[in-house]
Computed example of a mutant assay.
Amino acid sequence: MGTDRPAAQIAVNRERQRTLYGAPLGDRVHRLIGILGITQARLAGALGLSPAMLSQLVSGRRIKIGDPAVLARLMLLDERCPPAGGPPAPAAVTALLDEVRTAQLQWSVPPPRSGRRVPGPHRGGPDGAAAVRSGGAAAAHGPGGGGQLPRRGHRTAAVAPRTAADALRAVAGPAQLVAAAAALDRGFPELAEVLRQAAGRPVPR
């Protein structure tokens, strides 16, 4: 009976990962390293994880990716990864991993109407979230986004979003929304589900 318990717990953990990430992390990682022809340790380096931590996530001994920035990098790599087939050229793989490793995945925060600065999450905060900088909506849709706040006195036309999901998608890309959901999941599961739905990845029921 004692030998069955760890296996049963891992099965439970993998199902929890399926709920959080759409599939067990082992399945996602094995797909990526199979397509790219790289080792799990090299993937861990690109994501900003230690090989031991990634191994625990893949095996199901650990459930969650604790750092939202790591989750955002994993989602970015999953989006940019070519479809299954022949392995891409080594130079292309290296360029893709370097892009993911150095990606600056940030939220764009709209300016407050009162003109007062609103403090945002910062590196080293309660959830270990990456720095969030104010900017245009383009900053939320991948690396290199560098939108600037409107200059004081400069007015821009505003179009009211139709739904809450529209409002969320206007200021953050899918990777950032899912990363935020992972950060909020423990304390605010209902908000986390709203964020995942806005990202186009509703929680399975």
Score class of each variant (00 low, 15 high):
M1W: 02
G2N: 12
P6M: 09
A8N: 06
Q9F: 03
V12R: 13
R14I: 06
E15L: 14
Q17H: 11
R18L: 11
Y21G: 10
A23K: 08
V29R: 06
H30R: 15
I33Y: 01
G34D: 13
I35Y: 06
I35A: 02
A41W: 00
A44M: 07
L47Y: 06
L49Q: 07
L49S: 01
A52T: 12
S55C: 03
K64L: 08
V70C: 10
L76F: 01
L76A: 05
P82K: 10
G85D: 06
R101I: 00
A103R: 11
A103Y: 06
L105W: 03
L105C: 07
Q106W: 01
Q106A: 07
G115Y: 10
V118T: 05
V118L: 14
P119L: 02
P121V: 14
P121S: 08
R123V: 07
D127R: 13
A130F: 00
V132F: 01
G135Y: 01
G136R: 00
A137I: 03
G145Q: 06
L149A: 08
R152S: 10
A158V: 15
V159L: 10
A160V: 12
A170C: 01
A175K: 00
A181F: 04
A182G: 14
G187I: 06
F188W: 13
P189G: 03
L191G: 10
L191I: 05
V203T: 14
R205A: 15
